[in-house]
């Protein structure tokens, strides 16, 4: 189930939002790249641009051989193979955990999937949660399910937007261990946004500075 392939990530984007300009220019590779910069530099907006949820004004986004965005191309989010773990989980409230996990898995072409439901459930330790509704999960459980849902869609890269910010200290440690295993065992490239210096020090293999 290891993702394995070595991927080059080349990002150069800018976008005006109100009277701010959000810009990022970096290249990175496998491992966990922490997007680092002052608060308000628009780190979440950068992730949204990579995911296709926010259109850059200019620039390019390339993952390995594939161009997700440049002057001529603008792939819709569903065609990007970019997994996104949001700060608040964003599980679908009207679907049980199993159906949440399988949402992207069922949509992905079989050739793009690299993890089965069983593997994901075991990897994240969420076997016992499959029949539950999202509202009944603790913060840590919900974040594990959100990570599983993103992995099961067969992404080539994972975006994580402060995935620990809503958790207490004990859960943070748990989820950080999971993220390390995604980085080291699954070898999935990760773009990671955090304000927490300790978190970045522990998890990051590269750091990309954001902002002018």
């Amino acid at each position: 189930m290891a993702k394995g392939s070595v991927v080059a990530i080349d990002i150069d984007v800018s976008r005006r939002l109100g009277d701010r300009v959000i810009a990022a220019h970096f290249t990175t590779g496998p491992g966990l790249t922490a997007l680092f910069g002052p608060s308000g530099a628009g780190k979440t907006s950068i992730l949204n641009m990579v995911a296709g949820l926010l259109r850059p004004d200019r620039g390019h986004i390339r993952i390995g051989e594939r161009t997700l965005f440049d002057g001529a191309t603008n792939l819709p989010p569903e065609a990007r193979r970019v997994g996104y773990v949001f700060q608040d989980g964003r599980l679908f409230p009207h679907r049980r955990v199993r159906a949440n996990l399988l949402y992207g898995h069922d949509l992905a072409p079989p050739a793009n999937r690299w993890m089965s439901l069983d593997e994901a459930a075991r990897f994240l330790g969420i076997d016992h949660l499959l029949g539950r509704w999202p509202q009944s999960l603790s913060g840590g459980e919900a974040q594990r399910v959100a990570i599983g849902r993103a992995l099961l869609a067969g992404p080539e890269i994972l975006l994580m937007d402060e995935p620990l910010s809503s958790l207490d200290a004990a859960r943070r440690g748990d989820i950080m261990a999971v993220i390390e295993r995604i980085r080291d065992e699954l070898k999935l490239p990760i773009l990671y946004v955090s304000h927490d210096r300790a978190e970045v020090d522990r998890l990051a293999t590269q750091i990309a500075e954001i902002g002018e």
């Binding site: 989010p77 569903e78 996104y84 964003r90 679908f92 949402y103 992207g104 949509l107 993103a150 869609a153």
Partner: peptide, 9 residues
């Protein structure tokens, strides 16, 4: 938006 990133048109 979350659904779109999971492959839904």
């Amino acid at each position: 938006g979350a659904a779109r990133t999971l492959g839904a048109g």
